[in-house]
């Protein structure tokens, strides 16, 4: 049975809150990046990889949907699945849950593999490509949420952009 990657767990930190005691918009991005970084460790594409090769995954796009507020009362869990992958790109989908099982946010992230010295995108090494493709295959059986791959506001079935 295929399951998403689900290693991340963290209590909400005071530094993530804003004036109203709830998590700031930007903090949802930080939390989901931390969760996805754990997946990159598994795939051999983490900070250690960057330190030894000078190459790493850069975020080129992120699309966050905010669904519930989070405060110091909450502990957060995240699941991540590989939506698609190419030789130098990885598309991930992340769900962030509060410990009361409420879905707090979803995120889609597009990463590109960049060699910092060259200043351009380059294919991932074959070993990393194989690991990413294996995980993409194992996640292929997971249900795809209806909002995946939609632009902002497009779930609303209305004319115009709002």
């Amino acid at each position: 049975m295929s399951v998403p990657f689900a290693a991340y767990r963290s209590a909400v930190r005071a530094e993530w809150l804003d004036y109203n005691g709830h998590m700031n918009d930007s903090s949802y991005g930080i939390v989901m990046s931390e969760a996805n970084e754990l997946l990159f460790v598994e795939l051999g594409l983490s900070a250690d990889y960057r330190a030894s090769t000078g190459a790493s995954l850069y975020t080129v796009e992120s699309h966050i949907r905010y669904l519930a507020e989070c405060s110091l009362d909450h502990t957060l869990n995240a699941t991540t699945m590989v939506v698609a992958a190419g030789h130098k790109k990885v598309h991930l989908y992340t769900e962030l849950f509060r410990d009361d099982h409420r879905l707090a946010a979803t995120g889609e992230f597009l990463y590109v593999h960049v060699d910092a010295a060259l200043g351009s995108s380059v294919p991932m090494p074959s070993e990393q490509q194989a690991r990413v493709q294996d995980l993409a295959s194992s996640h292929a059986g997971l249900p795809r949420p209806g909002h995946l791959g939609l632009g902002v506001g497009s779930s609303r079935q209305r004319s115009g952009s709002v």
Partner: peptide, 20 residues
Amino acid sequence: DEDYRAAGHSLYTVETHLHH
């Protein structure tokens, strides 16, 4: 501003799509 929010309403972000 703060007074507007204190009176009970605000604008919340529901979606953000960034391009770096």
